[in-house]
Design a protein around this nucleic acid. Structure first.
Length: 271
DNA sequence: AAATGAACCTGTTTGC
DNA sequence: TGCAAACAGGTTCATT
């Protein structure tokens, strides 16, 4: 579920439920995620002060200056449930809150990971040190993208998915933003005109903003139900649509493999 | 330096 | 029908 818009949706859904609440008890059913989990019992008794997001990381600011950093990997999910509810399949951690509710972390593939970091050193930590700007901030603009593309003959898709250039672009939104910009995913980054990079910058911002907007409407679902499959997927114009008709030009959508990942595009609309 | 592939895991879908 | 291969939203590490 997690590209930037999904993580932001999780963040904004958890924020009102966690901020100001105290963690009474932490139960870890399995600590071997992508990396071993930190010693979570250290959180006992701490109050959550903020729920933030940086790139695809969730940041839980705790009383005392520590930050619980959590990455959802491919299949990580947070749910808020009554403490009475039994642990479901692939539930690895449960945080009991002071109000009878509990925050559950579930992760089928266990690609997720977490760390308990010192808030003042976040920026120096390897997970954050080399991250590029947030795509929806003013720091991400055409001049920044131009620098990221200059001299690189790598396909543009891998450049916009490079977190050192811009954070948050995953496999879905990379394909979708390139379609909207009319740029072929395999085009060498350095061979894209400034004018077209202006459009791409705009489309990246546009699609992420739209997806966050769509996620915002399903916040209550995500809290109370199991993972919703693709609330924004109705808006996909190329992702997962190989063989189907391009909604703009009528040609068949194609699929190819780039860097081991599926890329979807329209050969009629993207050059 | 930069590009590609493998690895980490489990579940579901596709193809023979 | 049965079984194996392919594939899935991310990131890091090793190898050309």
């Amino acid at each position: 579920m997690p590209e930037l818009p999904e993580v932001e949706t999780v963040r904004s859904g958890l924020e009102p439920l966690l901020v100001g609440r105290r963690i009474e008890c932490v139960v870890c059913h399995r600590s071997s995620l992508r990396y071993p989990l930190p010693e979570l019992t250290a959180l006992t008794g701490k109050k959550v002060q903020k729920v933030r997001r940086r790139a695809k990381y969730l940041l839980f600011d705790l009383e005392g200056g520590q930050v619980l950093v959590w990455h959802l990997g491919m299949t990580g999910q947070f749910h808020v449930l009554s403490q009475q509810v039994e642990a479901g399949a692939h539930e690895h951690v449960r945080f009991d809150l002071a109000d009878g509710q509990s925050l559950r972390y579930r992760d089928t593939r266990r690609f997720g990971y977490a760390g308990l970091l010192n808030g003042t050193e976040l920026g120096q930590h390897p997970w954050f040190a080399k991250l590029g700007p947030e795509p929806l901030s003013e720091d991400f603009n055409v001049d920044h993208l131009s620098v990221g593309c200059s001299g690189r003959k790598a396909p543009i898709k891998s450049v916009i998915m490079d977190a050192a250039v811009v954070v948050g672009m995953g496999n879905i939104y990379a394909s979708e933003s390139l379609f909207r910009a009319g740029i072929h995913p395999a085009r060498a980054a350095k061979r894209i005109s400034h004018k077209r990079l202006v459009v791409l910058t705009e489309m990246i911002k546009q699609i992420l903003a739209e997806a966050i907007e769509a996620g915002g409407s399903s916040i209550s679902d995500f809290v109370h139900t199991d993972g919703k499959p693709g609330y924004f997927s109705h808006a996909f114009r190329v992702y997962g649509r190989q063989g189907e008709i391009c909604l703009s030009c009528g040609k068949a959508i194609k699929r190819m493999i780039q860097c081991g990942r599926s890329t979807f595009y329209c050969s009629g609309c993207q050059h």
